[in-house]
């Protein structure tokens, strides 16, 4: 049994409705939620694994596959949409040579995700790489930003 998972679960012992924060924290440590992780959480907490899997697939922040070292979140909110978010998303994929049906680059450098809205609408179009937000993006600026991550 994985000790990190047990440590996380211990923190929530006796607190009602902790399935989501437990999954969030485990994902924070391990990068994603694997089937094994779900079985382990279920074994310790007694929450059925079907229920945990149901939660993990319901909420968009949970990842069921290993992720790249950096996460790019392309904002697809209304303001970004009318300011060319689709073009930015295409440019990111072209620059990273990422095919349409893949989200993670071959070298595991980036995982590319689309998010509904980052709430920085006044700086549209916007992307977020890890915890840093880049606003008023142009295709010209993109390559330099992406290449600064290793």
């Amino acid at each position: 049994m994985n000790n990190t998972i047990i440590d996380v679960i211990k923190k929530y012992e006796g607190i009602k409705g902790s399935a989501i924060p437990i999954l969030q924290e485990v994902q924070e440590i391990e990068g994603y939620i694997s089937n094994d992780t779900i079985r382990e959480i279920s074994a310790v907490t007694g929450i059925p694994s079907a229920e945990l899997y149901g939660i993990a697939t319901f909420y968009s922040m949970f990842r069921l596959k290993p992720q790249g070292r950096h996460t790019i979140r392309t904002c697809k909110g209304t303001a970004c949409h009318v300011s060319g978010a689709d073009t930015i998303a295409s440019a990111i994929r072209t620059h990273l040579k990422l095919p349409e049906n893949e989200n993670t680059t071959d070298d595991d450098r980036f995982t590319v995700l689309e998010v509904a809205c980052l709430g920085c609408c006044s700086l549209a179009p916007v992307i977020m790489i890890d915890d840093t937000t880049y606003g008023k993006l142009t295709i010209g600026k993109l390559a330099r930003i992406l290449d600064s991550y290793t």
Partner: peptide, 25 residues
């Protein structure tokens, strides 16, 4: 504080309550 996990429907109050209770929203 309860952090959402990315589900727009959780803005609806009964879904939000389900989510705080640790369930699908």
């Amino acid at each position: 504080i309860k952090e959402g996990a990315g589900a727009f429907v959780c803005g609806e109050e009964t879904a939000l309550i389900a989510s705080i209770e640790g369930k699908r929203g």
